[in-house]
């Protein structure tokens, strides 16, 4: 298992705190939406970064008003077949204008890396013996996209419009 961010294997500064654990005194944490609701005030008193973990049936709308306090939203793929997190990521970026980290967690299949990255994910928990190598192979899969999805990359139609050729 490794965390990939900006194309690099990085140490995860965040600690996942499960619902039955106590929140440590210091350091960035990721908590469930339930814990956020319950311990919101305590968590805000700490000066460290806060992330929230959303399961695939937890719509980011629930935390839309709190996004200003959050540095990270982890979106869980319970199975790589469950595509709801792609829409959540797009809503977080486009509708709620969230600029923090959106992390892919759970059943993250790197064959879907491009779909995730183009939907707004920018960090990936990768299950592999060599996560960086697996990531690099997947990242090289595509260089052309038909859709404009707000991730800054230009679609084929936009490039054509600018007279750019491959």
């Amino acid at each position: 298992m490794g965390l990939i961010k900006e194309g690099k294997l990085v140490n995860d500064p965040f600690k996942n705190v499960s619902d039955c654990e106590t929140v440590p005194a210091k350091g960035p944490v990721i908590v469930s939406i339930d814990q956020w609701m319950v311990r919101r005030d305590d968590l805000l008193k700490r000066s460290d970064l806060i992330g929230i973990w959303l399961k695939s049936d937890e719509h980011p709308e629930t935390i839309a008003g709190d996004l200003a306090y959050l540095s990270l939203v982890a979106l869980e793929f319970p199975s790589f077949r469950d595509g709801r997190a792609y829409s959540y990521a797009r809503l977080l970026r486009d509708k709620y204008v969230f600029s923090g980290e959106i992390r892919a967690v759970g059943d993250v299949l790197l064959d879907q890396l491009h779909f995730m990255a183009r939907s707004g994910f920018d960090a990936f928990e990768v299950e592999s013996e060599d996560p960086l190598d697996a990531y690099n192979i997947a990242a090289a899969d595509y260089s052309v996209w038909y859709q404009q999805t707000g991730d800054g990359r230009l679609s084929a139609a936009e490039l054509r419009g600018k007279g750019i050729r491959r």
Partner: peptide
């Protein structure tokens, strides 16, 4: 066709 081919958000629909 171009809009839907390899659409990042809609490739794992229900």
């Amino acid at each position: 066709r171009q809009y839907t081919v390899l659409h990042p958000e809609f490739s794992f629909l229900p």
